[in-house]
Computed example of a mutant assay.
Amino acid sequence: MHFLIRMGIPEMDELWNKLLSDYRTGTISKKNALLFKKWGKALKLLSENPRHPSLKTHDIEALSDRYGERVWQSYLENKTSGAMRMYWVYGPDDQSITIIGLEPHPEDKKNGSYARITLSDIPPYEA
């Protein structure tokens, strides 16, 4: 089963469209070009198989408790300072995944680091 990837509104949609526009016009910075490439690859893998080994997908209990819905984290990169993580939920329907955040990995899980993560609004799930 392939999933339709949706960007959480409005932050994720704006960020993705900005990166895409800058890439297409050749005005993207090297740093953003690298983010665009890694995020694009992760989105493709996520749409094909949310459990793809390179994504290292797992749920984040602290965020799931805060948002009242199971929140998943997948890797864009690993073993780098500030390695980016993509946060997502299933929905708003059975064939969709909604990206609700893109943040650097919190360095210290013991001191409430996930409390500092701000995610976009989660759309209602329609089963």
Rank of each mutant, 00 (worst) to 15 (best):
L46V: 14
I122K: 15
V71D: 05
K41S: 15
N78F: 02
I122D: 01
R85I: 06
E107C: 06
P104E: 05
Q73S: 13
S47P: 09
I99C: 10
E69F: 04
P104W: 00
S21F: 01
S54M: 12
K37F: 02
R66E: 12
A83M: 03
S81M: 02
M84L: 04
E14H: 04
E61M: 08
K79D: 05
S96I: 05
K79F: 02
V71M: 04
Y75E: 13
R24T: 03
N17C: 01
R66W: 05
S21P: 00
Y87N: 14
E77G: 04
L76C: 09
G8F: 07
S47F: 06
M84V: 00
Y90A: 14
L119G: 02
D93R: 14
W16L: 01
S81L: 09
T98H: 11
H2M: 12
P106K: 12
S74Q: 09
H58P: 00
M86N: 07
D94P: 04
A33W: 00
K109V: 05
M84F: 04
L55Q: 12
L20Q: 15
R70G: 01
D59W: 13
K38H: 06
N49P: 00
M7Y: 10
I97P: 14
Q95N: 13
M1Q: 15
K31T: 13
S47A: 13
V71H: 09
E14C: 00
N111K: 12
L45I: 06
L119F: 07
L102V: 11
E11N: 04
S113C: 13
K56F: 03
T57K: 06
Y75N: 15
Y114D: 09
D65T: 07
K44R: 10
K18Y: 01
R116H: 13
I5Y: 15
A83R: 07
I60F: 03
I97Y: 08
D108E: 08
S29L: 04
I99G: 08
E103S: 06
G112I: 03
R116L: 12
A42G: 14
L4Y: 09
E11L: 02
S96F: 02
R116S: 14
Y114A: 09
P53N: 12
L76K: 11
W88T: 02
I9R: 11
K38P: 00
E11I: 03
V89W: 10
P106G: 11
L119C: 01
R6S: 11
A83P: 02
S113R: 13
M1C: 11
R51V: 04
D65Q: 11
M12D: 01
D108H: 13
T80S: 12
L63Q: 13
L63F: 10
V89M: 06
L35S: 07
N32I: 02
R70H: 04
L45V: 03
Y125A: 11
T80N: 10
T25V: 09
K38I: 00
G91R: 12
L55M: 08
L63A: 08
T98V: 08
D22N: 07
K44D: 10
M86G: 05
I117G: 07
I99D: 11
P124V: 14
N111Q: 11
T25K: 14
Y90T: 02
L43H: 11
M84C: 01
Y23E: 14
K37T: 13
V71Q: 03
G8K: 06
